[in-house]
Amino acid sequence: MSFFLGVVSSGVATGAAFALVATGFVVIHRVTRVVNFAQGVFSVVAGMLCAALLTLGLPHFLAEVVAILAAIAAGFGVGLVAIGRRGTPPLASLIITLGVGVLSYAVVILLWGDGPVSFSMLQGQVDVGGVTMLWQYVLIVAATAVTFGALMLFFNLTYVGKALTACYSNPHAARLVGIDVRRMGLLAFAIGGGLGGLAGVLLTPLQPVEFDSDVSIAINGFAAAIFGGLLRPGTALVGGLVLGVAEALVSGYSRYASLQSGVALVLILGIMVYQAGRRPEGAE
């Protein structure tokens, strides 16, 4: 029983991090209609940078904050390339983000080499209602909860947050009332970068990152995101948690631990097939 709960708690923690990545996909897709293939890159960059800063002697928290700020800047930069040019169609933007992802490999290897990188996690564990949880898990869950709360407030209560929603709801009308849809798109990319970066600094102590870890991070995030059709952050949170727990159970109880990553892949195809069957062909 306690083994089971331990597995679930680790699943919840990684799932929460997936949900952050997923929300990055959702925020960017809602505003720009672009599926950002470079979404996993933000996590890799933040994780690697954080480790490097810690080695340089920067204290925890400060290192994480700097790494997340760098991820926000990276998100803004990717947005600038992908949608900065007026009239870039979404499919071209998607291929551009893919190009950025490939290019990032070169940059990451150049800066930090091609080996796995990690840093030490929050030490110790805590007893929550009979379940022993690593402090790092508690930290991930708490950080995710705070982030989601902040996002909800931002989108539902602030004027800029509503303008972002308006860009998704009706881009043409948004332009008519004077909202600069492109600038809103860049803001969305920056937020997406920050969310990816946060997931990166939270996950790296649990799973070392390599230059090409972005693929698996993005796949997990995407799987969680399409629970809500890439449009609803709330559903992405549920998706992330379900995915994280499912993967933890598979790796905890199956003889084929390597099937763990397969869960996300099968889930992606399964959900897509289900959604394709539900709505009329070609509809968004």
Binding site: K162, A163, A166, V177, I179
Partner: peptide
């Protein structure tokens, strides 16, 4: 300021949000 053909509202947002966003400029 234009009132566009076919209304072009922010359909899934509230009436109040629609009105407020009109004041973006």
């Amino acid at each position: 300021v234009q009132v566009p053909e076919g209304r072009q509202l922010f359909g899934d947002m509230t009436v109040e949000d629609n009105l407020r966003l009109g004041a973006w400029r």
